[in-house]
Amino acid sequence: MDRGCVIVFLALFTLSDAASQTVNQELSDIFNELWKLDVNRMKAGTDYNISLQGKAGYIPQGSRSAVDHASSPLFSLVDETKLSSITTYARFMKLLDNYERSTGVAEKVTTDEVTENNSFLDAILETTVMKRAHQYLVNKGKSRSDLRQFKSQLYYIWFRLYHRDRNGGEDSSGFEHVFVGETKFGREIVGLHNWVQFYMQEKQDLLDYKGYKSTHLPDEDDHVLNVQFSWHGLIKPVASAFVGVSPEFEMAIFSILFLTSTEKTTTAVVNLDEYQLEMVVHRQGRSIGTAYPKLLSSNSRHM
């Protein structure tokens, strides 16, 4: 297994935290199936490289400044030819400029953007990852077997607009929050849990990686770390995201977690490959409000 296929940007957790939580074996099993089916996952050292550099300091939530402990970007290499040649990535990247960054500003969705949303869903539904996720949800009685109905279900939970800031119009969606990122009240970064968006924003000099945050010195081959960054002049002390995985993999696991629970906030501890993660999904009505992983430990540390 290529450990470079996944990075998790995360908050700090101790071994006792991991040991105190019960692993959801059923979700672990299906997520590992999807992991093995994710043929579009990028390989660290081949398809992308990261540069960890210095250790970032403590920054309170809402702070606008941070000492920069990384003079270079986090991503020192990404094979953009591969990104653009894989249909799901190519269609995913077309969606990243479709949103107003600030909450409180009503989104205006054009017919072209609706077409792009549908084209992206069409692409991921053709992958083995999403086909297996669909089958699992049908077997659980959470989705219909008809593919068109499943696509409509995914559209609603990910792309339906809703109010995040009650002072404005419909200003947010699950997709925007999780994969694109938003700024709230002009004071803080919310969301932005996707590695491709992180890289693209970094490339445009809109996002500045400030360094890693962890209790131990990370190994770039380990690819499990805490990071800090600024985006459009705001600081995010810690963010969490997979890196290297395909868009369909993330859509699949978070859709499963969302649809198999009715809780306002759903958390589940899973063993995924060699990592133990706490998966978090928060609902906004019948749509996704946010979704992200938290690293509890790697197998080498909790075994």
Rank of each mutant, 00 (worst) to 15 (best):
M1Q: 11
I7C: 07
L10Q: 15
A11G: 15
L12F: 08
F13L: 06
S16F: 11
S16P: 00
S16V: 11
D17S: 04
A19N: 03
T22I: 14
V23I: 15
L27R: 14
F31I: 13
K36W: 02
T46K: 11
N49Q: 12
S51G: 09
S51A: 14
L52W: 01
Q53D: 14
Q53G: 08
G57Q: 06
Y58Q: 07
P60T: 02
P60I: 00
Q61L: 13
G62T: 05
S65C: 02
A66I: 10
H69G: 02
S71F: 04
S72M: 10
P73M: 06
P73G: 10
L74V: 03
D79E: 08
S85W: 08
I86D: 04
T88G: 01
Y89T: 04
K94P: 07
N98P: 00
T103Y: 09
G104Q: 01
V105A: 01
V109Y: 01
D112P: 02
N118G: 09
D122V: 03
D122R: 00
A123G: 06
E126Y: 00
V129E: 07
R132L: 01
Q135C: 05
Y136G: 10
Y136N: 12
Y136T: 12
L137W: 03
R144S: 11
S145D: 15
Q149F: 08
F150M: 05
F150Y: 15
Q153N: 06
Y155V: 00
F159L: 07
F159A: 02
F159W: 08
R164F: 11
R164Y: 14
G169D: 02
E170N: 12
D171T: 03
F175S: 05
G181Y: 04
E182D: 09
F185L: 12
F185A: 15
R187C: 07
G191M: 10
H193R: 07
H193Y: 09
H193L: 08
Y199V: 04
M200F: 10
L207A: 11
K210C: 12
Y212S: 04
K213G: 02
T215W: 09
H216C: 01
D221Y: 06
D221M: 08
D222L: 09
S230G: 14
G233F: 12
L234F: 06
A241E: 06
V243Y: 08
G244L: 03
V245T: 15
V245M: 13
S246G: 10
A252W: 02
A252P: 07
L257V: 09
K264L: 15
T265R: 14
T265I: 14
T266A: 15
N271G: 03
Q276D: 04
L277D: 03
M279A: 10
V281N: 07
V281Q: 10
R283A: 13
Q284I: 00
G285P: 04
R286M: 10
S287M: 12
Y292K: 05
L295R: 10
L296R: 06
R301I: 08
M303F: 13
